[in-house]
């Protein structure tokens, strides 16, 4: 896709805004189509979260009786929230790989040279991941809810969960973009991924914080992922409360905004150095 041509420079402001919107949409379309065309890349991020959910529902079915475990209908109901977050994390590995390829193909150089808004292009690039995150979240709920895992907050709760999944995906994409812009290295982007999984594990994603102890609990207590997952979980277990919605949406939104601001700052820093 070409963006920068010399006649763009003489466009009026209004037309250039129009152009930037067109670019953003084009980028969004490209990144979505790119994902949809590679089912082999997507399949693991659909299969594994379901596999783990079903596995742990069976493995840990008796653990719901442990003192401190929240009141649940089944372990599946408990694990619904973490499946979304974990699945979206899995899924955005694909997005990161695409991003890494982009870096190698000089996409970020083009981004640097683009005459119009960079925010739009960046968001457009991430839109594919965000849409995929929405799709995954909806898919996981559709598959797992029938297995004794009702959502107390009902349809509105489910919608909030799906939306949250999309924002989480966008946030991870933004974090990876800032790594990409900062380092310019595809390897660094790939290498940053295990760190996210470590972060996920050292949270209350898979087991309640109430049952943890020692250093592990202290880490989970300060890990933002804990609050994100617990917000989603509250929608499932308790219902549509203000606090649950805020946690489910606010945590990823804040991370997302911070990462995008950071990415843009890095971009400007690079631009200034040109």
């Amino acid at each position: 896709m070409t963006v920068a041509t010399s006649d763009v420079v003489i466009e009026t402001t209004a037309r250039s805004r129009q152009l930037s919107i067109r670019q953003t949409i084009a980028m969004a379309k490209r990144s979505t189509v790119e994902l949809a065309r590679q089912p082999a890349l997507i399949a693991p991020s659909m299969f594994f979260p379901i596999f783990f959910a079903v596995l742990s529902a069976s493995s840990f079915s008796k653990t719901t009786a442990i003192p401190g475990f929240p009141k649940v209908e089944s372990f599946m109901q408990f694990t619904l929230a973490s499946t979304i977050v974990q699945g979206v994390l899995f899924g955005s590995v694909t997005g990161a790989a695409a991003l890494a390829t982009d870096i190698e193909n000089g996409f970020f150089d083009r981004l640097l040279l683009a005459p119009t808004t960079r925010t739009g292009i960046l968001l457009g690039r991430l839109a594919g991941s965000a849409l995929f995150g929405l799709f995954q979240s909806a898919f996981f709920l559709a598959v797992l809810v029938p297995f004794d895992a009702p959502i107390t907050a009902g349809i509105p709760g489910a919608l909030v969960m799906v939306l949250s999944g999309g924002i989480v995906s966008l946030a991870i994409g933004a974090i990876m973009s800032s790594v990409a812009i900062r380092t310019g290295s595809a390897e660094a982007v790939q290498g940053a991924f295990p760190l996210l999984f470590v972060l996920l594990f050292f949270s209350s994603a898979f087991f309640p914080r109430e049952t943890m102890s020692g250093a592990y609990k202290r880490i989970a207590d300060i890990n933002p992922i804990s609050y994100l997952v617990e917000g989603l979980r509250a929608l499932v277990l308790e219902g549509l409360t203000f606090s649950a919605v805020v946690r489910a949406l606010l945590v990823p939104t804040v991370i997302c905004l911070a990462a995008i601001l950071f990415a843009l700052k890095e971009l400007n820093r690079k631009l200034a150095a040109l």
């Binding site: 840990f60 442990i66 050292f202 020692g214 592990y216």
Partner: peptide, 10 residues
């Protein structure tokens, strides 16, 4: 071991 520490209480 950290996440599932509580299962030993079963």
């Amino acid at each position: 071991a950290g996440t599932f520490a509580a299962i030993t209480r079963l």
